[in-house]
Design a protein around this nucleic acid. Structure first.
Length: 159
DNA sequence: CGGGCGTACTTTAAACCAGT
DNA sequence: ACTGGTTTAAAGTACGCCCG
């Protein structure tokens, strides 16, 4: 992670953990809600706090109390997660697919997204597996989105 | 003593590079 | 464009400490 204002640094699992921690008032309860371990929630929240440069919770003996910053951040995160819908999709996959959708080719998309073309290829393949259908078709030198691919592009762009 | 958070170490997943 | 091998980052397990 080289840049600090990269929204994709706020990976989706961490954002879900954050929302759950606000709702349930603690790391242990949030962990049960999003099906990860309690340390993953603690560490994920710490990473989010580092990324945005502000504390999200006050640590107390009886749980986590959200700060003002957390309450401002919360509705924006909920909107983004609602737009994405599927719980299987990762931030990396979403980023790769959007780059490919815009650029139309793996090499150009890789340059735009700041990752290598092979990584993009794999991420998009994983995403197709996650949603259970084709998202792009090869077309000459470039690629063309399927109907499902265009639908997903709209949802991810909103997020 | 029990419930909850934080840390150290281990395991798993993702990304890169090189080659086909 | 795609695949295989290696490196790096993220998540899980186990355990310790703190407070009521």
């Amino acid at each position: 992670m080289t840049t600090m204002h990269d929204p994709w640094a706020l990976n989706l699992r961490r954002l879900r953990a954050f929302v759950a921690a606000v709702r349930h008032g603690g790391a242990a309860a949030a962990a049960r809600a999003v099906h990860v371990s309690q340390p993953a929630v603690t560490q994920g929240i710490a990473a989010l706090e580092a990324a945005i440069g502000a504390d999200l919770f006050v640590r107390r003996p009886d749980g986590l109390t959200p700060t003002e910053a957390a309450l401002v951040f919360l509705p924006r995160v909920e909107e983004a997660l609602a737009a994405i819908r599927s719980p299987r999709i990762t931030g990396t996959q979403a980023r790769a697919f959007l780059a490919l959708a815009r650029a139309g080719a793996y090499a150009a998309a890789g340059t735009a997204a700041g990752v290598t073309a092979p990584s993009l290829h794999r991420a998009v393949a994983d995403l197709e597996f996650a949603v259970g259908g084709k998202l792009v078709n090869r077309r000459g030198r470039g690629h063309e989105l399927t109907a499902r691919g265009r639908q997903l592009t709209r949802a991810l762009s909103l997020a």
